[in-house]
Amino acid sequence: MTLQSDTLLEISPLLRLQWEEAQQRHVMLYPEGMIELNDTAAAILELCDGTHNLTSIVEKLEQKYEASGIEPDVREMLESALNNGWIRELVAQ
């Protein structure tokens, strides 16, 4: 699946993204399972809140980490999240 740069993204309602104090990391929780996230993945997924698209996620992260040229990595991560059903595209009503 290819991702359009301007489609708003949100976490799938079947999952919950949460900080786990005991593990000192973010996790994605779903029926009877859990995915442990690294910091980068968590930073990207936290921005999938229904108000950001690929372009604005990249902008925000480039500001936050004072980085540039991260678009391909972010795109790759988001596309795989989309294919895994972790996030979904918000369809305009």
């Binding site: 949460q18 786990e20 005991a22 593990q23 996790v27 929780l29 009877e32 399972g33 859990m34």
Partner: peptide, 8 residues
């Protein structure tokens, strides 16, 4: 408090 997160 010990770290359990999934509850059945």
């Amino acid at each position: 408090a010990l770290g359990a997160v999934q509850l059945g």
